[in-house]
């Protein structure tokens, strides 16, 4: 299976007022194409630092990180921006939708960032497909403020998918949702994963790690790495 993310001996050292703090201490990570990986660990273990690095928002102080075969550790800021727009789909705990834009415009936004020249009608078609897939075909012209938490996260998932990224990076995607919405979102993420998109998710909630490979981080290194197999989730009902 093709390796999508490969981090070798990753170190990240922060200088906090003259004190050197190591967030990552020679961490090694590999994520293959098509996997669903859950990253767990206590606060301060280095999860967010690792996520920022895999998300090309940050670079390691030492070590090499390869995304889809390309070494990102030496890339310029604009090259990292390009990788983020083309290969990664982001999902945030607090949804991070742009409040002035409608659901449709929010989902369409990442398409502005890629170099492929898509016509307006093609862009619209792709956006509508994504929104229908997450079951929000009937809410396209609403503003995010008019949606529930679960719906907002579904918009965020559609936004993350619209560029057909190599993988989705989800930072506690169910952290702000109730149990029913959590279940729906996890079903949706598994559905997306089954369709072929790799998912890397940071989570604190054990319930959300069913049928995923769990990487436990502690003190900047991976403490354990195991596959959790549960009952196969119910296929995501496509509506809208």
């Amino acid at each position: 299976m093709k390796t999508l993310v490969n981090g070798i001996e990753l170190w990240k050292t922060y200088d906090l007022g003259g004190v050197q703090v190591n967030a990552l201490r020679g961490l090694n990570i590999t994520v293959d194409k098509g996997e669903f990986v859950s990253i767990m660990g206590p606060s301060g273990s280095g999860k967010s630092t690792l996520m920022n690095m895999i998300g090309c928002l940050d670079s390691p102080t030492e070590g090499d990180l390869f995304i889809d075969g390309k070494k990102t550790s030496d890339m310029s800021e604009s090259e990292l921006t390009k990788i983020r727009s083309e290969k990664i789909g982001f999902i945030f705990q607090t949804f991070n939708l742009l409040p002035a834009l409608t659901v449709r415009d929010n989902v369409e936004f990442p398409l502005r960032n890629i170099n492929k020249k898509l016509s307006k009608s093609s862009r619209r078609k792709v956006v509508e497909e994504c929104l229908k897939m997450v079951g929000l075909g009937h809410r396209m012209d609403h503003l995010p403020g008019k949606l529930s938490g679960g719906e907002r996260q579904r918009v965020a998932i559609a936004r993350a998918l619209v560029n057909r990224p190599k993988f989705i990076l989800a930072d506690e995607p169910t952290g702000n949702l109730d149990s029913e919405a959590t279940e729906n979102i996890m079903e949706l993420l598994h559905h997306v994963n089954r369709e072929g998109t790799t998912v890397i998710m940071v989570t604190h909630d054990k319930e959300t790690t069913k049928n995923t490979r769990i990487l436990r981080i502690r003190d900047g290194v991976i403490e354990s790495n195991r596959m959790r197999t549960d009952s196969i989730p119910i296929p995501y009902p496509v509506t809208g």
Binding site: E77, T81, K82, I83, S85, N96, P99, N113
Partner: peptide
């Protein structure tokens, strides 16, 4: 600030 951070995270160029 947060919106700008989101835009940058999802690959919006500084120029944009």
């Amino acid at each position: 600030t947060k919106e700008i951070g989101t835009m940058r995270a999802i690959g919006t160029r500084k120029r944009s």
